[in-house]
Design a protein around this nucleic acid. Structure first.
Lengths: 222, 222
DNA sequence: AAAACTTCTTGTCATTTGACAAGAAATTAA
DNA sequence: TTAATTTCTTGTCAAATGACAAGAAGTTTT
């Protein structure tokens, strides 16, 4: 993700490695550096412009198991997840929770449809760990979208990236069996396993928790 | 889809109902009306603006089983499907075709990732029937995107709509069994069944053609 | 530490779906 | 019209997954 070979990059990497141990100074807390780096990783642009975009975001924290968005509410804000894990879920016809997405920082966590069309959210977005978020509202996004060409390009790329993530997941569901989907997730996002229960992961993979348990047993034999 | 209660709406509906019988006059052939109406159905705007956007599109036709885009090529254009049916497909690990999407006019048929990032297309886009398309290139899209605010909003909405279509399909794959997915498709897009083989539909639903055949048998009993 | 609760595993059995092959039906080509 | 080809159905059996229940392991609360 962070393929920018710049001074700033190194500075932020330092923050990343130390942030879990001691986030103390007010100075650090208010910095949008990680958001700026994330923006640059999607679409490189002049530092001042990334700063300008990031300046419209406000920081907030949530602890584990809190909700960012709940079913039937309207998404007033759009969210950048600086650190932590989030999942979205809904319910199947038997009332079982189905995890629709798992987000691991840094990334945007949004319900685009609700945010841009002001229709009700259809899923629940819940933290899986303590999280640091940055949010901004539709007015700010609209201003940037229509006044900062780089932001427009950035937004579009973000959509494309999200679309193809979903697309790939869809293809995995159709083309690959549960075992392969599991091992791929384990390989690509091992840290998710420290933050989500196997039940959550199973429903994200489209199987039951007992099936996942058996798959894990099979794999551990090898 | 076409929820615009205007004179133009009625005019085009007439065109829709008659178009299969006789598309003859050159005058008709060159008209972007259906594209304009489609744009308006996504985001209502002044007629002149929709006309301006549409004016950058060029018309072309393909007959059944031709390719719009092929794996590993770069998408030079973006396509609006005025009439006909298209599917995209790729191959699974055993070399079997997997239909990833079925498009039924009017709609846009794009590989966003390739078109906007100029990376290779990962799927094949093939017509399922004779088709009428309109295409425009990246330069035109970029000009409109940065100079026509309504086009920006339209593009974003188009992304959102496509994203949530995919999202809903993903949820269907996880939450519902093959029988329900089949009956839903049959109900929502019965015309697809006149244009795609059951093998194509089966792989779109994520099952084999023999399974689909058995599902159809079960349903016909009722 | 004990109790209550959650998470994970395992057993049993049913259901769904897939793999493969053969044949029927429909379509296309000669 | 006949032959060739494709599409669809069906049979048989295997594999994957689900439903449900019970118990083990781990956490949290009291």
């Amino acid at each position: 993700m962070f393929v920018i070979g710049s001074r700033i990059y190194k500075r932020v990497v330092l923050n990343f490695t130390t942030k879990n141990r001691n986030i103390t100074t007010k100075k650090y807390r208010m910095k949008t550096e990680i958001l700026e780096i994330y923006i640059q990783s999607v679409l490189p642009m002049k530092i001042e412009i990334a700063e300008k975009i990031a300046s419209k975001f406000d920081r907030f924290e949530l602890s584990k198991n809190e909700f960012i968005l709940q079913e039937n509410s309207i998404s007033e804000d759009t969210y950048f997840l600086e650190s932590g894990f989030v999942r979205s879920y809904t319910f199947d016809n038997n009332g079982n929770e189905v995890t629709t997405n798992i987000f691991s920082a840094p990334c945007f966590v949004n319900d685009f449809l609700s945010f841009f069309t002001q229709k009700p959210v259809k899923e629940n977005y819940q933290t899986l760990s303590n999280c640091i978020f940055w949010k901004t509202n539709l007015e700010n996004v609209q201003y940037n979208f229509h006044n900062i060409p780089e932001f427009r390009e950035f937004s579009r790329l973000l959509f494309i990236i999200n679309y193809y993530k979903l697309h790939d997941r869809m293809l995995e569901m159709v083309k690959e069996n549960a075992t392969l989907r599991y091992t791929k997730l384990l390989e690509k996002h091992p840290n998710i396993f420290q933050n989500a229960s196997l039940k959550i992961i199973a429903s994200y993979l489209g199987i039951t928790d007992s099936s996942l348990s058996r798959i894990r047993k099979e794999i551990s034999k090898i």
